[in-house]
Every structure is written in C-alpha cells, then in structure tokens.
C-alpha cells in the first residue's frame, strides 16, 4: 500500500455502498471470524483489497488459540494478501473456573475483553505475540481495548499498558481512537494528554467508530458515527505520526446515509493530505 489508505469494515451495508460509490474506499477490513463462518464474504475482494482483522488470538490471555485457528488465520492471510493482521490487545479465551469439580469448561467468548492491566499480563502478551508472529507471513498489529470497568488486580492504566506493550514487543499499533475516547470517559483521564504519551512511532492503522453513553458509561457503537471528539484526537495523532490506513468501523447497521459516510471519508482524506 502506498500512502495512507482509507477503508471500511465489512458490514451489512458495505457491498452496496462500495458498488454505489466506486473508488471511495481503498480497502475493506474483513474479520477473520466472519470469513471463517461465511467464506462467501471473501467475494468482497473483487470490489476492493482486503485487510484481515481478527479477534481469535487472545494475545493478552493465558489460553492460547488452537492450532486449527492459527492455521486458518495464516491461510486466510495468505489467500487475502492482507498487508498485516489486526488483532486486539485483549483476551477471548480463559481457563475454567476452579470452582466445584468441573463447573465450567474452558471458556471461549465471541468477543474480546480488556485484560488485567498488570506486569504479569504484559509479559504474557509480549510472549504470546512473539510466539504467534512466527506462524504468519505478515505482521500482526495490535489494537488497544476499550476499558469499560476496572479489572481486578490491575496495577497500571490502559495507556501505560498499551504503550509498554508496543515498546517491549515492537508490535505495530492499531490505534482505535474511539476505544481511547471510551476509556478516557470511563476511567476519567484526559484523552489528548494520554494520547501524547502513546508511542506513535509504532502506529500502522487507526480505527474510528461511534460511541454511545448509556447507564453512565461510554460504549463502543458501530451503528453510530465518530463524533468531533474522535476527529480532534485524529488531528492530534496526525500532528505526530502518519498511519498507513484509517478504517471506519460502521458495521452494525446497514443504515448509515451515504452522504454522512462520504463526508467523513473526504474529511479524513483531507486531514491525511494536509498532515
């Protein structure tokens, strides 16, 4: 990929949007899990190049993914010719509870969870990344989690945890600006001040989506659009670093009007051009 590209994550309205607006997006970000569940989604590659996104590697977890999952990701990475694989700095699988005899089998969720923010998890995440990277022909880049609640046993902030992870592992950064904003609201920190502490020299890709405040908490909202606060964060990032890709994650609803999405894409293209 040459220059900063702009893409959309795969969702119910994606194909028709790309068909209605040829040339508007440079790539489509496709979740590996969707591709595995429904291989027909790969057909979108005829419309635009793909970037593979992933939630199965449990990088910040203690239960490794199965060999079958790793092999399947590797196969799809080669087949889709993705330039990198995006994954979350989170866990998706965990040990069974040591309660009773065998009250629970090992637990695998269908979504990623912010890990305990501690040295123990940081070490483990760096080890996991190094071990997993050897299975793939393209780099793994890692996305900051949104923090919705304090995780017991945590000893550092989400920004310290994320920063240290990139410094120690050398992994590329997938900076989700909305996740950063969500964490800042929920953990009560200044997002711009904390953004200034992130090692943006590792930045590869950015994500933008909506956020929604309900029950006193900010939540990820891929049915909504990124608001001004997220664009302000993007401007702060672009003052210091230049990503290779910016992805709009509007993949929960088919409803987003074209004019709004096109407006945000053009605004971002303009910001990238003048950065």
């Amino acid at each position: 990929m040459a220059g900063a590209q702009i893409g959309l994550s795969y969702g119910p309205g994606l194909v028709s949007f790309v068909e209605r607006n040829p040339g508007m997006v440079d790539y489509v970000e496709l979740p590996f899990e969707l591709l595995r569940h429904d291989p027909s989604t790969a057909a979108v590659q005829s419309l635009a190049p793909l970037i593979l996104h992933c939630a199965s590697l449990s990088i910040a977890g203690f239960v490794p993914p199965s060999k079958g999952t790793i092999d399947a990701i590797s196969l799809e990475a080669d087949r889709t010719r993705t330039p990198w694989i995006g994954e979350h700095l989170a866990f998706i699988s965990a040990d069974p509870l040591a309660q009773g005899t065998s009250m629970h089998e090992p637990t695998t969720l269908t979504y990623t969870v912010c890990p305990q923010l501690s040295e123990q998890v940081l070490d483990r995440a760096c080890e996991n990344l190094a071990g997993l990277q050897s299975h793939f022909s393209v780099p793994l880049i890692v996305e900051n989690s949104p923090q919705y609640f304090k995780v017991p046993g945590s000893t550092m902030s989400i920004v310290d945890f994320t920063s240290e992870f990139h410094r120690r592992s050398g992994a590329g950064m997938l900076l989700d600006l909305t996740h950063l904003m969500i964490s800042s609201i929920n953990m009560q920190f200044d997002p711009k001040q904390e953004l200034a502490r992130l090692p943006l020299e590792y930045l590869v890709e950015m994500h933008l989506s909506g956020l929604d405040v309900q029950a006193g908490t900010a939540w990820d909202d891929h049915a909504g659009i990124a608001d001004e606060s997220v664009f302000e964060l993007m401007a702060c990032v672009l003052a210091r670093a230049r990503p290779r890709a910016v992805t709009f994650e509007y993949n929960w609803s088919p409803e987003l009007p074209d004019n709004i999405l096109i407006g945000q894409i053009e605004r971002t293209r303009n910001m990238l051009a003048h950065a």
Partner: peptide
C-alpha cells in the same frame, strides 16, 4: 485450572470474567 495461590491472580481474574460473561 487457574492458580489458587494469590488473590486477583491474572489467569484467575480472566477466568472469572469469562465465566461471568458467558453465563449471565
């Protein structure tokens, strides 16, 4: 099985969170 040695030991915390989330 998660360790029983420490309070809020990371694998234990992850196990508890995952169990609670998968079983409301």
């Amino acid at each position: 099985m998660p360790s029983k040695s420490k309070i809020n030991h990371a694998p234990n915390v992850h196990a508890a969170l995952a169990a609670a989330m998968s079983d409301p």
